[in-house]
């Protein structure tokens, strides 16, 4: 698959094209090799420079990058022996959300998360990661399973939002999300939440309450997508950039505001440049946190979770 560059990455791609050209020229020799190595170190420097100074809007673009790793990548990279579990037992199976049992370093865990899909066909079948009520009801079923069998729940968030459709309303989207919030806020098992790409609105929060809520460095999280906020507040959908900045959707701002517990650093140039690397970082956080939670009595854990929830915007 051809690599897609974001506009602000153009200076980097220009240098990379230069290297390609040198390599493709057929010339060999010390001069060429040293030129390539010079360019390579320039690329590294430039990538560092660009990625350590991303604007909020640029982060939105990185969070939505077509090559950003998805939940299915994380399942493969971080966990083993995954058994996908399907269906909400009420109406249907929603492929916008994947759930199931897996092992994290031998230890069984329950996983849930949105999957946006990769190929065009896959994206359509997964509705671009926008779940319907049955998707949330499936996660509710799996959350209960985690509680019943005393397995930690790990939730991966990457969604533009819950799907706004006629059938979603007929089957009670509001109720499905509300029930999940109620369930998660006192689910009797440790819950780790990782926002990996887009944390869009109630559709994200419905699997987003936990004992440790973290965000990847270039992920975003907000009450509405920047486009939706722009059309509601500015009455102009094209003001998405302004909306993203006003809502402070980026991980570092949200950590400073006390709304997320941890920001997980991404490899140089973003998660899309090194899927393994970012998976390792996530894996380390999970390992550390599961270890911490093992030491805590479940009633203390729930008490702490409740206090944390109550602290958000407490007046």
């Amino acid at each position: 698959m051809a690599y897609t560059y974001l506009e602000f990455e153009k200076p980097i791609s220009d240098l990379e094209n230069k290297i390609e050209k040198l390599r493709g020229s057929g010339d060999i020799g010390k001069d060429i090799e040293s030129e390539i190595s010079k360019l390579s170190s320039q690329i590294e420097k430039l990538t560092k420079e660009v990625y350590s100074n991303l604007s909020i809007w640029q982060k939105v673009q990185v969070a939505r990058h077509p090559h950003r790793p998805h939940f299915s990548d994380y399942i493969e990279n971080i966990f083993s022996d995954f058994d996908e579990l399907h269906g909400d037992r009420v109406f249907g199976e929603d492929k916008a959300i994947i759930g199931g049992l897996a092992r994290f370093k031998k230890r069984p865990v329950v996983l849930v998360g949105q999957e946006k899909g990769k190929s065009t066909e896959d994206k359509i079948s997964r509705n671009f990661g926008m779940a319907q009520p049955e998707g949330y009801r499936k996660t509710a079923r799996l959350m209960k399973m985690a509680e019943d069998f005393e397995l930690p729940l790990i939730s991966f968030i990457d969604t533009p939002g819950a799907y706004p459709g006629i059938e979603s309303e007929e089957r009670g989207m509001s109720e499905a999300i509300a029930k999940n919030l109620s369930l998660l806020s006192n689910l009797k098992t440790p819950v780790i939440v990782i926002i990996t790409g887009e944390g869009g609105s109630g559709g994200a929060l419905a699997i987003g309450i936990g004992d440790h809520v973290c965000m990847l460095e270039h992920s975003i999280y907000a009450v509405a997508s920047p486009e939706a906020c722009a059309s509601i507040v500015w009455r102009d959908g094209s003001k998405a950039k302004d909306a993203a900045e006003a809502m402070k959707v980026d991980a570092s701002n949200l950590q400073n505001l006390g709304l997320v517990d941890e920001v997980i650093e991404e490899p140089l140039g973003g998660a899309h440049r090194d899927s393994r690397g970012v998976s390792n970082s996530i894996s380390q956080v999970i390992e550390k946190k599961l270890h911490n939670f093992d030491e805590v009595d479940i009633s203390d854990l729930l008490k702490k979770r409740y206090e944390k929830i109550m602290s958000y915007g407490s007046i």
């Binding site: 919030l181 109620s182 929060l205 907000a222």
Partner: peptide, 23 residues
């Protein structure tokens, strides 16, 4: 719905209000 001008603070009120109803 949730108030845009407080973004994630507003979103998280959904969690808070749902949690207190459990109590």
């Amino acid at each position: 719905g949730a108030r845009m001008q407080e973004s994630l603070f507003s979103l998280f009120q959904m969690a808070r209000t749902s949690a207190v109803l459990n109590t």
